[in-house]
């Protein structure tokens, strides 16, 4: 066990965990920030996507010891009260079915839009390739990303 001072959603958080613990489980177990989801644990599904200094990362493969003071943003910290253009677009397009993958989808999409405010279909396909939606909401996800890119 070791102490880590993390910067999560703009707040300093102290946690005492094994250094090998992935950020995913620090968020879920130690900090009760459960919006970030476990889907595979091997960086294959995207359910656990967070931003590290603004870049989309799979938190299931990211040990707490590797993060240092880099800024971690989770779905809970993406916006005040769900007002990010993507969150609004997601509601507008009524995207979710079960909803389990959606936080990860939104985190991947928001990293994409930050780098590429007007993504093409191919850009979206590439950026979102790592996020599985078992319910098959891909067409709506794509439409919502396009809507957000227009208003964002």
């Amino acid at each position: 066990m070791a102490n880590f001072k993390l910067n999560i959603n703009g707040k300093k958080q102290d946690v005492n965990v094994d250094p090998s613990t992935p950020i995913l489980w620090v968020l879920r177990d130690s900090l009760q920030l459960v919006g970030t989801k476990y889907g595979c644990g091997i960086a294959q599904c995207g359910a656990c996507t967070v931003h590290i200094n603004g870049a989309a990362m799979r938190s299931c493969q990211l040990p707490v010891s590797a993060v240092g003071d880099k800024k971690i943003t989770t779905i809970e910290g993406l916006s005040e009260n769900g007002t990010h253009a993507l969150q609004k677009a997601w509601i507008e397009h009524d995207v979710p079915q079960c909803g389990y993958c959606q936080a990860g989808q939104i985190m991947s999409a928001s990293a994409l839009l930050k780098d590429n405010p007007n993504p093409s279909d191919a850009d979206i396909d590439a950026a979102m390739h790592g996020n599985i939606c078992r319910c098959g909401t891909y067409t709506r996800i794509k439409a919502a990303i396009k809507t957000a890119s227009k208003i964002g």
């Binding site: 009760q32 919006g35 989801k37 779905i75 969150q87 936080a103």
Partner: peptide
């Protein structure tokens, strides 16, 4: 008439709601 998913807001803001989120 189409009505939006009542849970959409909770889903897109990552609120606890799934079994695996239970504490």
């Amino acid at each position: 008439k189409s009505h939006k998913n009542v849970d959409a807001k909770s889903i897109v803001t990552g609120e606890p709601m799934f079994g695996v989120d239970f504490q």
